[in-house]
Design a protein around this nucleic acid. Structure first.
Length: 204
DNA sequence: CCACGGATTGGCT
DNA sequence: GCCAATCCGTGGA
């Protein structure tokens, strides 16, 4: 890790650009969560883009509701939703105000605060070999490991609690662009981006 | 008020 | 690979 003063937080301008551009560029960036002085962070390995204007799988396809309203903000806010009765998933809102676009963070590679993430995920202090890559290899897992829940809905990512740190993408030649998974509508849009061969990529 | 299904996960076959 | 768990948001009556 670089010393703190050399780290550059991604700013509003980064998030307000085109959905797919931001989705691609999120790969390799560091996601940071601060809570009670503890820092939890990881490198973004896998994302999916959602655009309510043309994409039936997006939560904003039905228009603005109380649940999805933050997705219509200008880029740089956190959209957290609850699903399947158990899981939270977090998204980065992108674009200009009113677009209804966001990017689901599907997997990260743990960097800082790993022991806390283990505790958050499994309520234990140690992992067996099988669990090592099970820590943050899915959208629900990422939120559980970082303790992200509905209380973080709408957080401004240019603030100090949850934010992203700029990093060069060292796997540029290893980015895979393919169809999204776990959805039933608009299944053919190639809006899933991940780093090939990284062990934290979620299933398939 | 009620019915339905989901941007998932983990356990079992 | 298959499937149940679990509950809230959404839409229709």
């Amino acid at each position: 890790m670089k010393p703190k003063q050399l780290q550059k937080k991604l700013d509003r301008q980064f998030y307000t650009r085109d959905l797919l551009t931001v989705a691609y560029e999120l790969l390799g960036k560091h996601l940071v969560k601060k809570e009670k002085g503890k820092i939890l962070s990881g490198r973004i390995i896998e994302v999916e883009a959602y655009d309510g204007s043309i994409d039936e799988a997006a939560h904003t396809f039905i228009g603005k509701t109380k649940r999805n309203e933050i997705m219509f903000n200008i880029g740089g806010y956190l959209y957290v939703y609850f699903t399947y009765g158990n899981h939270y998933c977090c998204n980065v809102v992108t674009g200009e105000e009113g677009k209804g676009t966001a990017i689901l963070i599907r997997a990260i590679e743990p960097l800082e605060g790993i022991s806390t993430m283990i505790k958050n995920r499994f309520n234990r202090d140690l992992l067996n070999e099988k669990e090592k890559f099970n820590l943050t290899s899915g959208p629900g897992k990422v939120c559980q490991a970082l303790s992200i829940n509905k209380s973080h809905y709408g957080i401004d990512l240019t603030g100090d609690e949850i934010y992203l740190i700029d990093q060069p993408l060292i796997d540029k030649q290893n980015v895979v662009i393919t169809k999204r998974i776990g959805i039933k509508k608009s299944v053919d849009l190639p809006w899933r981006f991940y780093i090939k061969d990284n062990p934290y990529v979620s299933k398939k």
